[in-house]
Design a protein around this nucleic acid. Sequence first.
DNA 1: TCAATGATTTCAAACGCTTGAAATTACAAA
DNA 2: TTTGTAATTTCAAGCGTTTGAAATCATTGA
Lengths: 348, 348
Amino acid sequence: MSVTLKDIARLAGVSESTVSLALNGKNIVKAKTKEHILAIAEEQGYMPNVLAKSLARRQSGTIGLVVPDIENPFYGRFIRCVDDCLAKRNYTLLVATSKDQFAGEKRVVETFIAERVEGILIAPVHHPVKNIEYLSKLTRNGIPFLYVVAYYADLAAPCVMTDLEKGAFEMTDYLIRSGHRSLYYLVGNREAVPTQLRIKGYYQAFAAHHLPVDENKLIQCAKADFTHAYQATRKLLAAATEADAILTMNDIMALGALRALLEKNIPVPDRISLAGYDNVVFSSVAAIPVTTVEQNLPVMAETAVKSLFQLIGGETLPAKPLLLPPKLIIRESTKSKQENKKIQEDVK
Amino acid sequence: MSVTLKDIARLAGVSESTVSLALNGKNIVKAKTKEHILAIAEEQGYMPNVLAKSLARRQSGTIGLVVPDIENPFYGRFIRCVDDCLAKRNYTLLVATSKDQFAGEKRVVETFIAERVEGILIAPVHHPVKNIEYLSKLTRNGIPFLYVVAYYADLAAPCVMTDLEKGAFEMTDYLIRSGHRSLYYLVGNREAVPTQLRIKGYYQAFAAHHLPVDENKLIQCAKADFTHAYQATRKLLAAATEADAILTMNDIMALGALRALLEKNIPVPDRISLAGYDNVVFSSVAAIPVTTVEQNLPVMAETAVKSLFQLIGGETLPAKPLLLPPKLIIRESTKSKQENKKIQEDVK
DNA sequence: TCAATGATTTCAAACGCTTGAAATTACAAA
DNA sequence: TTTGTAATTTCAAGCGTTTGAAATCATTGA
């Protein structure tokens, strides 16, 4: 069907080898011959068959990335960052989604193995997983992999991610320092590592201020999404009238909470402050721009890709997460209570 | 490095052919042999090399999809829909992004050709393009393609998309019928087909009501995004105090406009109604949920995939867009003026 | 026991490319 | 002219599969 090396060779009156050599830019081929070949290839609309090329070279030039959800702009952005990093290195990115199910993660990882990617980046599903069956296949086939964004609890493997604990600590600490005392925390699945890390950070901040944590203020949401956060906030507002801050695990949840707050006409941040996580683009364009913790995706992508190539190169990496610094981004949803108090004093 | 057919054959004491036959589920192989082979393959973590398989079969089992922007949840959702459609047919989806640049579109299409995808779905860049250089390569290599979401003005090619004109018509018509008279329209690049179609729908609605269109109410934004819509709205509000509705080309722009409106404390929809397009998930969770036009992505994906497979099967499709019906989704950002008026009357 | 027949298995070529080694060519020095 | 050497081109094997055709095996009816 399509034009092949052989066609070009025939048309140019040279051997396939010469065409191959010429096309791959080696300066082994005589300039004149090369020119001739290139002209014919161009004219014929020749495109090398990378399947054949990969097979012959024993290198696919591809890297696989699995994400739980491609509709989520957080991952959308991450994909783009990784793609850019790989393009610089002349590699092709293959993306697949696990649909946030472990079965899906397993399936796409196996597909990647079959496609003979040279390495795999895995953003794990948002649930704890006991036994990662695809690992042996990965090692059997000698394909290096690296977790990104998060990792699994009982699996010692290299990983590149944001220091979620530190991020949660800084956020909580900031809220406490600015005068908040009743901090509710809307969390997702508590068995999942990223949830646990954030909660740890929350506790630490309280400890740092010698304040006790009220366990009841950790509100469990079945899923860490808009709807569940919205519902949880409604319930919370009905019961806990003393709340002066609501923290969430991500910006989408924060938007859900914000919706509930606006509906009830509760002034944000004057009566209740609101905080998200991730710094998804929409958090800055909400009705009230929300304070959040940024995960530096470009850096995370670059670090992950670099590390993965180290693995591919045969180096070994420590089997534990490499933590990237988070960054607190303060917006209008959390004006300082201190400040308010000061202002009130002044008025008096 | 990795386990191959040959390894399994050796271990099982049979020929490679038998292993291949057994693994591909043909019931040609004796049950006992098959069982034995399968056990060994499993034990060895064997994964077939799809590169070799594709080469031998002369079929890659892959379909390429190019989108302008993977961070945009509109495309994220579309990718997911297409992926689902292809999974049902046992095909693998390859996604690449053009970064909304024609050079990028060309590049990724060529990559897809090199990867020998069996067909390509192209969501074109948001700019008009004079000469599509990759077309000849596509036909030379016999790879069917289909535009989705939009198409290029002077290219007669099959396409599957929403009837954007009708959507804009219905939205405008609805706004006029509900009493709006000064409808501003924030539009993007007017040379791009999707912009033109929407504007056409806008004009038609005015015509249907025997009303004149005020050209000056079409506000050109350099880019159809949040920031430009925000700026344009600010400018607009300063000048046009009689405006009673703002239409935009997509929901992201609507959010930008909404931000400007909220900042100026302009009641939405009481003083000004606001409308978006696309029904991106965030449009329903905005501070004020925005009225919009839904593009039915699951149907679009299914139709596109079906059409593409018809092309792959050798059928020819009409070289013009297949239009899918849009759906008006009315939310709080456009309460009926009629109603308001009626209510006011009642009060009197 | 033998041939015939159907069930299994194997052979061998092909897919389109790369690449080390061998062959050929070109050119400058002798 | 030869020759030696470097430059260029070609050979041929190999990458891991598939698959039509051929070979082998097992089973059955005569």
